[in-house]
Design a protein around this nucleic acid. Structure first.
Lengths: 188, 188, 188, 188
DNA sequence: CGCTAACCGAGACGGTACGTCAAGTCTTAAC
DNA sequence: GTTAAGACTTGACGTACCGTCTCGGTTAGCG
């Protein structure tokens, strides 16, 4: 049975270090010291640093946003992307995501796990798209996977490269372009 | 004066290790041993592992593709994105790019440098867009920076997450959606 | 808690390397490899090479000779110096002492520590001298510190320069001269 | 032909570094940089750091003191030891000697050379003793080598250990004890 | 008076060892 | 029987100098 005290202290320490020192500044050793917990305790419950950070990230999000269903593609995407871009307002989440993506590049085992989590987020978008397809809002033959890439790609790209500001203000334009692009060449 | 022998041996060793063992498998020590060169020689010319990998990547590309100029946005983007997606056909480049992006997340100093390189690639796209804007192919008020994100974002996202195949075959659809999205709601 | 296995292996390896390769031939890296121990383990318990060698030296001596107390200055000094010169019969100790003295010249931090150890040895002589003074065997006003230098100085000098043989055979003459010199111009 | 400029600059730089940073702070690389001279130039004329420091030491002494000859052992020794202890008044010489003695412990090749230099200094004392023996001032059977150790030993010991002040003020007592000790047992 | 040999600076090179860091595994003892 | 404490191996880091070496660019003095 995982001791709630220890586990919470570890997650809190992880979150604190993430905020203060960035992903690189988070070390299992540092977390253990900060949480006043033995290193072995951390390893008992989390198998690696990225797994720990992933958990800390999930705790920072808490409530799962329900899949939006407004009846139109634009409406659904607006809700979804606005929420997505809102991540940028939370340094902890930004740092966590950037670090996790980095880790996924370096550690194939974690990449697998990370991909699973990413897929769960993509599924939400693919459901939105499926409903839109049913309504005839999508050009026939649209690949939902590549469409999802169009939703997440620019967000992640900007998040990772950091060349420009990121925030919910971008959602409107993003959705406009998405809808236009996905509807296809209207007049043929 | 940098000795050509040493420098080439180092870059070759870096490339070889990248291919064989991935970005994580590249270590300065390993490169030095492989290249039969002293560690200090590597450090003399490259200030860090990412700088070294970046150089090895550049050497693997060599010829700079000229900015395409076909007279239409679709034409230019098709050329550009096809070339971009072709990266996926070279494991060395894929690994290099993934590792460099990872490193940029972990090391702020390198992030800066990496951003510089990214910007140089973005500039090519922004020039294409500027010409398209002059021709009236873009909706007025289009933000070229965000538009560039739409070009690179999906590519990088798929490259980094690895959830689906990547290759020049995607270029056609990508361009179609971009052109549609960027032209805007033509008839209102 | 220091693991006895590791610690003993390290000291044994240090002693072995001292014998085989001299003080210069002792490196932390070499000791670690020889002791089949991680370098960090050596560093955990000894803060530097001289500290390690000092410890190895102490282990090689083990039993502390009791302060001699024969009732006469000549008797005490004979016992003490004989023991002192006997060091020359143990190559390991000779190398250790020469190396430690060398290190004390090069590293001020270690010099401090070394001085402490030297002082502990000097104290033995100063106690002998104090008792002799009580018995009236010393010229009044004799400086015990400088007198101790007269005991240790020639020994160390010959040990370090290596210009002539060193061994317990020298003790008799040394003591004769010391006693004569320290008694002073008694009868004028 | 050795360029006088370069050679002097090197010796001056060595002396300066010796004073400022101690023997350990002298590195061939540092000397070369300081003297604005190529490293290879230093190596051309001095085969090692101790050789260089030895040279710098010799330059700091300049005139060779003539062997004292006052007609009495006490007189000769007083002149000699006073001069000897005066070394302590020159930080450069102190640091040089300490460093050279250290080096002699670590580098057998240099030890040889160093021993030669030491012997030249010992010879002066042995000449003084030979004359004293002729005059009957020494107990018969006195070993001039061990007697010389008695002259130099305490000086070097204090110089190297640094446990107490060193200076010409010590010469008087030292000589008194030497003369007494060397003359032998009053009644004999 | 011009040639050539030496000496010069600059600095790259292969090495060795340093001391540090964090990772992840393992053992011990207490609660 | 879970924990805390913390020692352990491993592997790479980046640094400092070492002593050797090649490279052109002066300078001197010999012929």
């Amino acid at each position: 049975m995982r001791s709630q005290d220890a586990s919470e202290a570890v997650l809190a320490a992880t979150a604190a270090l993430l905020e203060e020192a960035g992903y690189h500044g988070v070390t299992i050793e540092g977390v253990a010291k900060r949480a006043e917990v033995a290193k072995s305790t951390v390893y008992r419950w989390w198998k690696s640093k990225p797994a720990l950070v992933m958990d800390a990230y999930r705790h920072s999000v808490e409530q799962r946003m329900p899949t939006p269903d407004t009846g139109t593609l634009a409406g659904d995407l607006t809700l979804f992307t606005t929420e997505l871009y809102r991540i940028a307002e939370h340094p902890l989440r930004v740092r966590a995501l950037r670090g996790l993506m980095a880790e996924a590049q370096l550690d194939p085992a974690f990449a697998e796990e990370f991909r699973g989590w990413v897929e769960s987020r993509r599924t939400v978008v693919k459901e939105i798209l499926a409903r839109a397809a049913d309504r005839g809002e999508l050009a026939p033959g649209t690949d939902p996977d590549f469409a999802a890439d169009q939703v997440f790609g620019p967000f992640w790209y900007r998040l990772l490269v950091g060349h420009a500001d990121l925030g919910p203000a971008l959602a409107r334009d993003h959705v406009a372009q998405l809808v236009e692009g996905l509807r296809g060449r209207g007049t043929g």
